[in-house]
Simulated assay, not measured.
Amino acid sequence: MGYDLSVKLYEELKQNGYIDKHSMVTSELKKAIENYDLRLSSEFQPWLPAIVKEIKRHLQALPIKDGTKKKKVHVNMAVLNQEKFRQLWDKIKYKTVYSVDFDSEQLIDLCIAAIQEMKPIEKIRIVSRKGRVEIDHVTGVQAQVVSEKVEDYVSLHHTLPDVITELQNRTNLTRKTIVCILTGCKRLDDFKNNPQKFIEEVANIIQRQMRLLLKDGVKYYKIGDDAYYAVELFQNEELLAYLNDNAIPSEKSPFDHILYDSDVEERFAKRFEHDENVKVYVKLPSWFKIDTPIGSYNPDWALVIEKDGEEKLYFVLETKGQETGMGGRTASR
């Protein structure tokens, strides 16, 4: 967002009563986050998912769960032995190898265009604050900022990282392809401003474009009939749920509770449970991996949807968050 816009956001949070005069979080902010009702001006709407995520990170810096609500998750044998689930698992359980066919020139063009649209990467800034702490037997500990200084971090002898090797290791592309992307995007000034941030952003963009381009250019082949993930592995899972915190009851999956990692995953799980078209679904365990050209991948969900008398199997590839503007991406078979 940059420093100036961040300051503006801070002032707006203060005006809306989300933080107090001592820069401490108020109950209004906690309530707004819990109810998905953070109210900000239109200027901040494009940033809203990232703002909410950052606020949550600070609110949950030391997450404490209610031990009285801890419950062991049990396998739902009625679903695990259900014919529809067995059919679902039989379709996805086999381990595979792949072959790739895509146009590298097209990938370069797509990456260049996407990087050129990337938000500017500002210089690293150092914020120095001096505070005064007062301890009172009545009011407790009170902290107050008495001065603040902001300056750009500049080092004349700073050694820049090897951006080509870094991106090559993260994408498995050739050095020639990486060089073409970097020289074509004309955004290397951003790299000088903040090398690590630039590498992170560009690597994510390249991987995203590779996924979009490769979706029709990757062919998978079974390694063999004996190489697969056995359904019995579900019975070896040791899972603990904290009710109303990171889990919801489930009647359509192989476990009696679904553990979720984010608000987005929670909404997906509830939707699957209540949608009559969803016959059976599974939050895929961490051991379920698919080898891809950009590394091993663990899809979030697999489900069977029946609509108009026809059944379809879906992989939901990503429901971790909405930073890329997509709440979830699916692939059907």
Rank of each mutant, 00 (worst) to 15 (best):
N204L: 08
I206L: 08
Q207P: 00
R208D: 14
R208E: 10
Q209I: 01
Q209W: 01
R211C: 04
R211W: 11
R211H: 03
L212R: 14
L213E: 08
L213F: 06
L213P: 02
L213N: 01
L214C: 02
L214H: 04
L214F: 05
L214D: 07
K215I: 12
K215N: 06
K215M: 11
K215L: 07
D216F: 04
G217S: 03
V218C: 11
Y221L: 12
Y221Q: 14
Y221I: 06
Y221D: 07
Y221C: 07
K222Y: 04
K222Q: 06
K222T: 08
I223C: 06
I223D: 01
G224R: 07
G224W: 12
Y228I: 00
Y228S: 03
Y228E: 02
Y229T: 09
Y229N: 14
A230G: 05
V231K: 14
V231S: 09
E232V: 00
E232A: 09
F234D: 08
Q235R: 15
Q235D: 10
E237R: 02
E238S: 11
E238A: 07
E238V: 08
L239I: 01
L239S: 03
L240W: 13
A241V: 14
A241N: 12
L243S: 05
N244A: 13
D245H: 10
A247V: 13
A247N: 03
I248T: 10
P249I: 06
P249K: 12
S250W: 02
S250Y: 05
E251T: 15
K252L: 09
S253C: 09
S253A: 15
P254A: 01
P254V: 05
F255Q: 02
F255W: 07
D256W: 07
H257C: 08
H257Y: 15
I258A: 03
I258Q: 00
I258V: 15
I258C: 11
Y260P: 01
Y260L: 06
D261A: 11
D261C: 05
D261F: 00
S262R: 03
S262F: 09
S262Q: 10
S262I: 13
D263F: 11
V264S: 04
E265H: 00
E265G: 02
E266G: 10
E266Y: 05
E266S: 12
E266W: 09
E266V: 10
F268L: 12
A269K: 02
K270C: 05
K270S: 06
K270N: 15
R271N: 10
R271P: 00
R271S: 15
F272P: 07
F272I: 08
E273A: 02
H274W: 13
H274I: 08
H274V: 08
H274G: 04
D275A: 15
N277R: 12
N277K: 13
N277C: 07
V278K: 01
V278D: 00
V278L: 01
V278M: 00
K279G: 15
K279A: 15
V280A: 14
V280S: 13
V280C: 11
Y281P: 02
V282G: 08
K283V: 07
P285R: 05
W287G: 03
K289S: 05
K289Y: 13
I290L: 15
I290W: 04
D291E: 13
D291L: 09
D291N: 11
T292V: 03
T292H: 06
I294V: 10
I294N: 10
I294A: 10
G295A: 13
S296H: 05
S296Q: 14
